[in-house]
Design a binder for these strands. Structure first.
Length: 449
RNA sequence: GCUGUGAUGGUGUAGGGGUUAGCACGGCAGAUUGUGGUUCUGCCAGCCCGAGUUCGAUUCUCGGUCACGGCCCCA
């Protein structure tokens, strides 16, 4: 028995119905916000990702060479391919901003666990060609709208702005450039110390760079701030108290948050957190992430922000852009867990088809004669499953019931003689004889719904 | 990268160095030759892979594979 490769999954019809409903729901929200779907290849040139994330990333990729020894890789994420597409397809000729959405599988070679697969699915959006607080608010609002629409509960969105801490640090005189021989700029080191709670390390860094280590305390206070939009008040006080520090990023964040409050439903929990750094140096402005606590260690279900990547493709004028990626599998896991906990049978809104299946059961007759009726009913939009095994009536009824049909249409010799068919609702048990033609059958089914 | 637990029909499980490997759901068939959801009967279908220990391994040991957790990391 050959097994499925590690970290991959098969999706059975029932699971797939749910996934399709979820994708459709996300797609619908994206459309309402003006985003249009695009698609890029499953594999790309290896360079695309090393250019974005450095050579160290290769160990986590499904990289390979094709028969012409071109270095390729299965895509580990979708932002870089989208940026590549914008440059390659000449999309810079289009009216700005571009509002793009995408969905597809990505591949990372890493330990598979629950909520973490080697083949995983991401839904995401990018808003390209306009930046600033309002553009950022539009992106956050879509993220919130999506999570709200899918019925997810108990999630937390944390919003920050890398420019605030970075601005404070550079304002104090810390360099944002990587010195000769070092592997990261002092500012990045400082951000890490703040994130890890290493105040001693931060103080030493300040001293080493000729900055008064007394500045550690206010920065710590800034990093530890947590709460809603009201947190910006204390943040403003701290920043004002520091020499040479600009308030621009803070003002931007405030504008963004106010716009989000107006544009999106109120999330279950929204926190301002200036240490949301996402660890990536191409994030330049607002950054945000969403966690679902009950998922545990793999609880982050969405992350995004403003970033500068298009300069890598010769389009520096389009930087920065703003977008997010939504962990499709993780959100589904959370929804499934929550549905289970609350006894809800529908996990994703709309996953069950309201237009139920109709079992079409020819019995003891020449099937060919009634096939045109099947075709017509399908053309009329009914979902018809034709009984193919020649089951006798009791078996056929049981079959129809067990596959979840709402109706049966039985046509036996007697019916054929009388020019009729027996239509039965498996929900109500009601049954009636109906003229043997598609119009009459469709009308009867509709009337009995 | 570190580490813990587990693997028995399609699903959920019981058991255990020699068993007809038990039960439930499921599937197929019959009871029931034109009407489902109940019931009864029969049947189908299983010890993850490899090596070792042993007279004998599904059971014990080691390795592999896969899954599920806890850290680290996460474009």
């Amino acid at each position: 028995m050959v097994q499925r490769p590690r970290g991959t999954r098969d999706f059975t019809p029932k699971v797939m119905a749910r996934r399709l409903a979820f994708e459709q729901l996300l797609e619908e929200r994206a459309r309402r916000h003006g985003f249009s779907r695009i698609q890029t290849p499953i594999f790309e040139s290896l360079d695309l990702f090393t250019a974005k994330s450095g050579p160290g990333i290769v160990s986590q990729l499904y990289a390979f060479e094709d028969k012409s020894e071109r270095p390729l890789t299965l895509r580990p994420e979708l932002t870089a391919p989208v940026m590549r597409m914008i440059a390659e397809e000449g999309m810079q000729m289009l009216q700005k901003p571009l509002r793009l959405s995408y969905y597809g599988q990505c591949y990372r070679y890493e330990e598979s666990k629950k909520g973490r697969y080697r083949e995983f699915f991401q839904y995401g959006v990018e808003l390209v060609g306009e930046s600033g607080p309002l553009a950022e608010a539009e992106v956050i609002a879509l993220a919130i709208d999506m999570l709200d629409a899918c019925g997810l509960e108990n999630w937390e969105i944390r919003i920050g702005h890398v420019g605030i801490l970075k601005g404070a640090l550079t304002g104090l005189g810390l360099s944002a450039d990587t010195p000769e021989g070092a592997n990261e700029p002092p500012v990045a080191s400082a951000m890490r110390f703040l994130d890890k709670g290493d105040d001693a390390g931060l103080a030493k860094l300040f001293t080493d760079n000729g900055i008064n280590p007394d500045n550690t305390a206010p920065l710590r206070a800034l990093a530890d701030l947590e709460g809603g939009i009201e947190t910006l008040g204390p943040a403003r006080e701290i920043l004002t108290s520091l020499e040479g520090v600009s308030l621009e990023a803070l003002d931007d964040l405030q504008t963004t948050l106010e716009a989000v409050a107006a544009l999106a439903p109120t999330p279950p929990s929204l926190a301002v957190d200036l240490t949301v750094a996402r660890g990536l140096d191409y994030y330049t402005g607002m950054v945000f992430e969403v966690k679902v606590p009950e998922l545990g260690g793999e609880g982050q279900v969405l992350g995004g922000g403003s970033y500068k990547l298009l300069h890598l493709f010769g389009l520096p004028d389009l930087d920065p852009s703003c977008g997010f990626g939504l962990g499709f599998d993780r959100v589904l896991l959370a929804l499934e867990a929550q549905a289970e906990a609350s006894g809800r049978s529908e996990v994703v809104p709309g996953e069950t088809d309201p237009k139920g299946l109709v079992a079409f059961i020819p019995f003891g007759i020449d099937v060919a004669g009634v096939l045109p009726i099947v075709a017509s009913l399908r053309a009329a939009g009914e979902r018809i499953e034709l009984e193919l095994r020649g089951r006798k009536i009791p078996k056929a009824m049981k079959w129809a019931n067990s596959i979840g049909c709402q109706f049966t249409v039985v046509i036996g010799p007697r019916d054929l003689e009388n020019g009729q068919a027996m239509v039965k609702s498996l929900v109500s048990g009601e049954q009636q004889a109906v003229g043997l033609n598609a119009d009459a059958l469709a009308a009867a089914i509709q009337a009995m719904r």
